[in-house]
Simulated assay, not measured.
Amino acid sequence: MRPIESLQTLERMCHISALSGHEEDMITFMKGEMARYLPECRVDRLGNVIGCKPGADPEGPRVMLFAHADELGFMVRKIEPDGFIRITRVGGIPEKSLPAQRLILRGSRGDVWGVIGPKSHHLTPAEEKFKVVEIKDLFVDVGAHSKAEAEAMGLFPGTPVTYHGFFREMPGGQVAGKALDNRVGCFVLLQVLRLLAEKEIPATVYYVATVQEEFNIRGAQTAAFAINPDLAIGIDGAVSCDTPDLKPESDIHFGGGPVIGHYTFHGRGTLNGLIPNPKLRQYITDVAARLTMPVQHSVFLGGLVDTSYVAVVREGIPSVDMAFPMRYSHSPIEVASLPDIEQLIVLLATAVEGIAAGLDLSRG
Rank of each mutant, 00 (worst) to 15 (best):
L19N: 07
V175S: 04
F215L: 15
R194Q: 12
L138H: 04
D236A: 10
P244S: 02
L46Y: 10
E151A: 07
V63R: 00
Y206P: 02
A152T: 11
A148W: 03
I235E: 01
E353D: 11
P325W: 02
L180E: 10
V90N: 10
V205C: 09
Y283T: 00
F130P: 00
L348M: 15
A152P: 08
I93N: 09
A56G: 13
K247A: 06
V112W: 11
P229L: 01
H121T: 05
P58D: 04
T124N: 07
P278F: 13
H297E: 14
K96F: 14
L72V: 13
S331G: 14
F254M: 11
E71P: 06
G255E: 06
F29L: 09
F130G: 08
S20T: 10
T162F: 05
L103T: 12
E5T: 10
F156Q: 09
D286F: 03
L38P: 09
R106F: 02
E149P: 07
L359Y: 00
A176N: 03
F187L: 04
S17K: 01
L291Y: 07
E200M: 09
L193T: 05
V43W: 02
L347N: 08
E334P: 03
L304M: 15
M293E: 02
S329W: 00
S108H: 06
L361H: 00
Q191H: 13
L155F: 08
R36M: 12
V184Q: 06
E11P: 01
K178Q: 07
G354P: 04
R106I: 06
I135H: 02
Y328H: 13
A179C: 14
M30E: 08
G237L: 14
K136Q: 12
I252C: 03
L10K: 07
Q101D: 04
F225H: 12
L196S: 10
V184D: 05
A351Y: 06
E134T: 13
D181T: 11
T264A: 14
I50T: 03
D251F: 11
S146C: 11
Q101L: 03
G91P: 03
E198A: 15
F130H: 15
R36G: 09
G261C: 02
S240N: 09
G273A: 00
M34L: 15
A289Y: 05
G110F: 12
H266R: 12
G51C: 08
A351F: 05
S329H: 07
R62D: 08
A150H: 10
D82Y: 15
M64D: 01
Y263H: 14
S6T: 15
